[in-house]
């Protein structure tokens, strides 16, 4: 079963597009996009285990630290640069978003919405949220930048990033009613404000 955000992303990808997936994990999204959208591209990963999984999955993967820089990639060399559930784990958020829009014509980012009501509820109960989209305990989480849909949109505004499309979902179902409260996962497509 593909993750629900995969299908949302795939719908936005033009057939035959050139895609860069930053923090691509085992390469499942790339493989999905190759199959469903005839996309071609590369994943970037830092962990040995994920690199091996990508090779087994038959997707192109490059072992690199995407926090360092993306200097291996020329400007405008990809149709889409994807950051799937990775933005909340990167240290230099501004830099990575800038690099995404340097290398790619468009960026696609998915992230767990910290404003989801269950998260808020756990905070109200006095505990940091642990859920399906935020499965880690506070002391072991790789997620160092937790933010909400509203935070992200304000960030885009401030960074001259133009939001082109947004899908918010919970358990794979699209949420249109108070998405910052009822949506657990946000998927955005964006480009540079010209």
């Amino acid at each position: 079963m593909a993750r629900p955000d995969f299908a949302a992303i795939a719908r936005w990808i033009q057939p035959g597009a050139r895609v860069l997936d930053l923090g691509c994990g085992d390469g499942a999204l790339l493989k999905y996009l190759e199959k469903t959208r005839d996309a071609r591209g590369y994943g970037v990963e830092i962990s040995d285990i994920d690199i091996l999984a990508c090779v087994k999955n038959g997707v192109n993967v490059l072992q690199d630290n995407l926090e360092a820089d993306l200097s291996m990639f020329e400007s405008n060399s990809f149709d889409y640069v994807i950051l799937s559930q990775t933005l909340q784990a990167v240290k230099h958020t501004e830099r990575i978003v800038r690099e995404i829009l340097r290398v790619g014509k468009e960026g696609i980012a998915t992230f767990p919405n910290f404003g989801y009501w269950r998260n808020r509820f756990q905070i109200l109960r006095g505990q940091m949220p642990v859920s399906k989209n935020l499965p880690y305990q506070w002391f072991e989480t790789p997620n160092i930048h937790l933010f909400t849909i509203r935070d992200f949109e304000a960030f885009c505004q401030q960074q001259d990033v133009r939001i082109l499309e947004r899908v918010v979902m919970t358990e794979g179902v699209s949420i249109n009613f108070f998405p910052n409260l009822f949506g657990s996962l946000a998927v955005y497509r964006f480009d540079r404000k010209t």
Binding site: D48, I51, Q63, F73, S77
Partner: peptide, 18 residues
Amino acid sequence: IVKALLDNNLDVTYAEMT
């Protein structure tokens, strides 16, 4: 090498081992 292959849109996998 990898950079040059990327510039040409070629299929490439790169790993840096410890």
